[in-house]
């Protein structure tokens, strides 16, 4: 599903060179639910950005769903993002001036779906997240948990191959966090691959696979079955 080989990302200014990722190699299998953890500055967000085609990388090879994305131009990357990847952000990133219906509609319009198709998908996925009765509400009229559910519906509406979640419960209280995590697990159970960046070890333990980043490289990988028998060092 997702295969990174020796991916490096270097940020350069006139005076400073920062190595955010150092020859990172990892694979995410189809149907997996991967939690990526690590301390601040370990490269979690950079990994997420590169995995989601939000940023380019300095060297290495990245295969997404069997396709080498290393040399795609901006337009091709946008198209691939739209078709293959669903994003869930820590701050929900809903568009405040648009109602819930229109927010979920955003990626579908870029996909070029007809109006009837878009409407059907929006209604279906708002129903999945339990918000079909709030379609005309603005984001500001919803709780944080409900806003994140809208964001999940928006991510799912394009029926992507995998979801990238950036601290999806970071701005939620524990009850809402559990609810959102439960929803993500249900989605994964239905076959969608999920890669979730989090700093919360409790949430990470609910994923099938844990990847721990440190200083821009994978320092540890463990599957859920291995967690029961002690973690296996992959570095």
């Amino acid at each position: 599903m997702l295969s990174m080989q020796q991916i490096a990302k270097v940020y350069r200014t006139d005076t400073v060179e920062t190595h955010a990722l150092r020859e990172l190699t990892l694979t995410v299998d189809e149907g997996d639910f991967v939690a990526v953890t690590g301390p601040s500055g370990s490269g979690k967000t950079t990994f997420l950005n590169i995995a989601g085609l939000l940023e380019t990388f300095s060297s290495g090879t990245y295969m997404l769903d069997g396709r080498d994305v290393s040399n795609l131009n901006d337009s091709a990357r946008s198209k691939l993002r739209n078709e293959k990847i669903g994003f869930i952000f820590q701050s929900f990133n809903l568009i405040p001036d648009l109602n819930i219906f229109d927010n979920v509609d955003v990626p579908l319009r870029y996909r070029g779906f007809k109006s009837a198709e878009r409407k059907a998908r929006i209604e279906k996925y708002l129903d999945v997240v339990g918000l079909s009765g709030r379609m005309k509400h603005l984001p500001s009229q919803l709780s944080g948990g409900q806003q994140q559910r809208v964001a999940i519906a928006r991510a799912l509406a394009g029926e992507p191959r995998f979801l990238l979640a950036d601290e999806p419960t970071g701005n939620l209280d524990s009850a809402m966090a559990r609810s959102v995590m439960g929803l993500l697990k249900e989605i994964n159970e239905e076959g969608t691959t999920i890669v979730m960046v989090t700093h919360d070890p409790t949430l990470a333990n609910e994923a099938k696979t844990n990847i721990h980043l440190k200083d821009g490289v994978v320092s540890e990988t463990a599957s859920i079955s291995q967690l029961g028998n002690g973690k296996q060092n992959a570095a």
Binding site: L54, N82, F87, F89, I95, P96, P107, Y110
Partner: peptide, 12 residues
């Protein structure tokens, strides 16, 4: 918001 739209698949 523009960054979000780009992330969701909007081209330049």
């Amino acid at each position: 918001q523009i960054g979000t739209r780009r992330a969701l698949g909007a081209s330049k």
